[in-house]
Each structure stands twice: as structure tokens, then as C-alpha cells.
């Protein structure tokens, strides 16, 4: 059974990779299988985990959680979108979802991505912490602190459009855009590494597990 699975996986892997040559029926077959299986997998997982696992068992347990019925009713109302004459009812659960998500996101992002990030940017340039003796930080930390302070400041200057980017201000904006470009470059480098890793994983499967050429 394992061997059969490996051959099927190899057939599908090569089918998807064949797109690099050009679009072809083999690729289309593999793509359709992937989409179909993904949809089926999601449906079954959500049914057993949510509808059966959480809702049904929760409501029918000896200590029933009737609050789950509210969620079930909202979920059912969402499905009414499929009935055009009363499709407008689906807007209510949608409003609930949007409202709850927005509320949670505002708090989470403001706390984690704004306040704490601003706080960590406000670091002393030549010390490890505020209150510590000056020049206590290592050269590595000092350079890091200077880069963060300079990069943040000049990056913000670049996005300040109420003043023409000329002279000293223009120079700072130019450093800002360079900082941003270096950040994008680092991101791109990591992305290349990530994509290559996936290819390496598949190639190891083809040449190792399937063709058995790798020790």
C-alpha cells in the first residue's frame, strides 16, 4: 500500500511540476484532483469537528450548552443566502461576524502591533536598557539600536508627503526608501529560501522515496 501511495504521489508531483514546461492535460488532472480533495477534506473535517464534535455533542451532553444554539441559528441564517427571496437575512450573521472580528482585531493589533512595537523602538542608543550606564551595550547592540532608530525615523519621513522631499528632508526620505528596499530584499531572500525548501522537499521525495537514488 505504501508503494502504491508513493507512486500516486510521484505521478501527482510530476504532473504539477510539468506546468513548468507548459500547461498540459496531465497538470490539469492533478490540479483538479488537488482542488477536489481539498474541498472534500475541509467539508468532512469541519462537519466532524464543528457540527458533530462541538455543536451536537455540546447540546446533547448531560450538561448541555444551549448557547451553542445561538451560533447554530446564526450559521443557518448565513445559509439563507442560497434562497434569494429571503437572502437578506444572511446579512445579520454576517454583521455579527464582522462586528466581533473587528472588535477583537482592534484590541489585538493596537496592543501587540502598535503599543508594544513603539515601546521596543524607543530604546537607548548606547545602553542595553533605560537606566543602565551609557556605552554599556556591546558594539553589535549599539549598531543595531542606531539602525533601528535611524531606519524607523527615515522610513516615517519617506511617508510624510506634506513637505516636498528636497534638501535634508529629501536626503532623509532617500535613506528611508533605501531602508524599506533593504527590508523588502530581506523578505524576498527568505521567500526564495522558503520556495526552494518546498522544491527540495519534493525532489527528495522523487529521487529518494520514489526512485531510491539518495542514501
Amino acid at each position: 500500500m505504501d508503494t502504491f501511495g508513493i507512486w500516486v504521489a510521484a505521478f501527482l508531483t510530476l504532473g504539477i511540476i510539468s506546468f513548468l514546461y507548459r500547461d498540459n492535460p496531465w497538470y490539469k488532472v492533478c490540479e483538479s484532483i488537488f482542488v477536489g480533495i481539498s474541498a472534500g477534506y475541509w467539508f468532512v473535517t469541519l462537519f466532524y469537528d464543528n457540527i458533530l464534535g462541538l455543536f451536537w455533542r455540546g447540546v446533547t451532553s448531560p450538561d448541555p450548552h444551549y448557547m451553542l444554539l445561538v451560533g447554530a441559528v446564526l450559521g443557518f441564517m448565513m445559509l439563507l443566502r442560497l434562497v434569494p427571496p429571503i437572502g437578506w437575512i444572511s446579512r445579520w450573521p454576517l454583521a455579527f461576524v464582522v462586528g466581533a472580528t473587528a472588535g477583537l482585531y482592534i484590541i489585538n493589533y493596537f496592543s501587540s502591533n502598535v503599543m508594544l512595537q513603539v515601546q521596543s523602538t524607543l530604546a537607548p542608543l548606547f545602553s542595553t536598557k533605560f537606566g543602565q550606564p551609557i556605552f554599556e551595550a556591546s558594539l553589535y547592540d549599539t549598531i543595531g539600536n542606531l539602525v533601528i532608530a535611524g531606519g524607523t525615523f527615515t522610513g516615517l519621513v519617506y511617508f510624510f508627503f506634506s513637505k516636498e522631499h528636497k534638501g535634508v528632508f529629501g536626503g532623509a526620505a532617500r535613506i528611508g526608501i533605501w531602508t524599506i528596499m533593504i527590508t523588502f530584499g530581506a523578505s524576498f531572500g527568505y521567500t526564495v529560501m522558503s520556495r526552494m525548501s518546498l522544491l527540495i522537499g519534493r525532489m527528495e521525495f522523487i529521487f529518494g522515496d520514489w526512485l531510491r537514488l539518495i542514501r
Binding site: Q117, Y190, T191
Partner: peptide, 26 residues
Amino acid sequence: NTGVQATGMYPYLRAGQLKGLLGGLS
């Protein structure tokens, strides 16, 4: 994290919100 995400995690690491990070295959 996958390599794609890793750069986005460094600010959290610096802020002390993350206690360690493994970025991508490296």
C-alpha cells in the same frame, strides 16, 4: 516559521513577545 513569514516575526522577537524563533529551513 516558514521563510516567507520569518522576517515579519523579528519585530516581535525584538520586543520580547517571542522567546526564540526558527526561520525557515536554515
